[in-house]
Write a protein that binds this DNA or RNA. Structure first.
Length: 259
DNA sequence: ATGGCAGGTACGACCTGA
C-alpha cells in the first residue's frame, strides 16, 4: 500500500497539480490538508474521473482535510469519523476512515502562530486531545497511519536554521514534547525509519526564495502504528511539485507499506 | 527590527499561514 500526505494550500488552485501528481504517482491513498473548500465545492467529479474516490470535511477559507483513494482497489471507506470526538472544534482539521484494513487519518494540526499566543495554546490543547483519541483508536484498531501537516519540526535536523528557529513556534519544546508523546503511544515517524539525506524538508516559505535556498522545515509526517511500522519499505519527500509554477508551499510525503 | 509571498474574501484591505 502506497500512501501520501500533502498540504495543498487550496485544492481549488492546486487540483490540476494534484491530479497530475496522482497520474505519475498512483498512490493507493492520498491525505490532503488545507483544501480551503466547503464540501459543496469539493471537486468530486474531477477526482472520480481521475480514478479516485474521496471523503472530505471542509469549511470556507481555512483548513479542510480529505482522503483520496484509488477506486480500482474496491475499498469502501469504513468507520468515517470527522473531527476528534474528544475535542469539539469548528475548525475542520481531522478526518479518519478505514481503507483496505488500515485506519487512515488525515490531520491538519493548528499552526500556533506564535509561542504564548491564544492560537498556540489552542494548538497544544488540540494535540493533547489528539493523543487521547489516538490512544483509544490504537486500542480499538491497531493498524493506523496518521498522515498530515503536524506543524511541528520534531528535531533540529528537521530545521534549516535551528539557531534562528530555537524556541519559535513549530520548534518549541512544548510542541516537540507533544510530538514525542504521539510517538510514545506506539507510532513511528515513517521518514526516520530510513537513512535520509541531510537538510530534507517538506515546507519552504514562499518568501525570500525559501525553496531555492532550501530554507525549509520538515513538518509533514506519516506516523505509522507499531503493527504496521515493521512493514514500511520506503518513505520520501517529493520535492518536484514545489518546483512547479504556483506551487503549494508544502511537498508531498510518500510512504510504502507491505500490506 | 521589519517584512518579504500566497490564498481567500470580496473589490479594499485584512486575516492566516509557517
Amino acid at each position: 500500500m502506497k500512501l501520501a500526505t500533502w498540504n495543498v494550500n487550496s485544492l481549488k488552485v492546486r487540483l490540476p497539480q494534484v491530479l497530475d501528481w496522482l497520474a505519475v504517482h498512483p498512490v493507493d491513498a492520498l491525505c490532503l490538508q488545507e483544501t480551503k473548500l466547503v464540501d459543496e465545492k469539493f471537486p468530486v467529479a474531477e477526482i472520480e474521473a481521475a480514478g479516485y474516490r474521496a471523503v472530505f470535511s471542509g469549511q470556507p477559507t481555512y483548513n479542510g482535510v480529505a482522503i483520496l483513494w484509488r477506486a480500482d482497489r474496491g475499498w469502501q471507506a469504513q468507520d468515517l469519523v470527522i473531527g476528534n470526538p474528544h475535542f469539539p472544534d469548528e475548525q475542520k482539521r481531522l478526518i479518519a476512515a478505514t481503507l483496505g484494513g488500515v485506519r487512515l487519518i488525515s490531520a491538519y494540526v493548528p499552526n500556533g502562530q506564535a509561542v504564548g499566543s491564544d492560537k498556540y495554546e489552542y494548538k497544544l490543547r488540540w494535540l493533547d486531545a489528539l493523543s487521547v483519541w489516538l490512544a483509544e483508536e490504537l486500542a480499538a484498531r491497531p493498524r493506523i497511519v496518521v498522515a498530515g501537516d503536524y506543524n511541528i519540526a520534531p528535531e533540529d535536523r528537521d530545521v534549516h536554521d535551528p539557531v534562528a528557529w530555537a524556541g519559535q513556534v513549530l520548534c518549541s519544546e512544548p510542541e516537540r514534547g507533544r510530538f514525542q508523546a504521539l510517538l510514545a503511544l506506539g507510532f513511528a515517524d515513517a521518514y526516520r525509519l530510513f537513512e535520509q539525506p541531510e537538510k530534507t524538508f517538506s515546507w519552504w516559505d514562499y518568501r525570500q526564495l525559501g525553496f531555492q535556498k532550501n530554507r525549509g522545515l520538515r513538518i509533514d509526517h506519516l506516523l505509522v502504528s507499531r503493527p504496521l511500522a515493521g512493514g514500511v519499505t520506503a518513505c520520501s519527500i517529493d520535492r518536484a511539485p514545489r518546483k512547479l509554477p504556483q506551487p503549494s508551499d508544502h511537498a508531498p510525503v510518500v510512504a510504502e507499506l507491505s500490506v
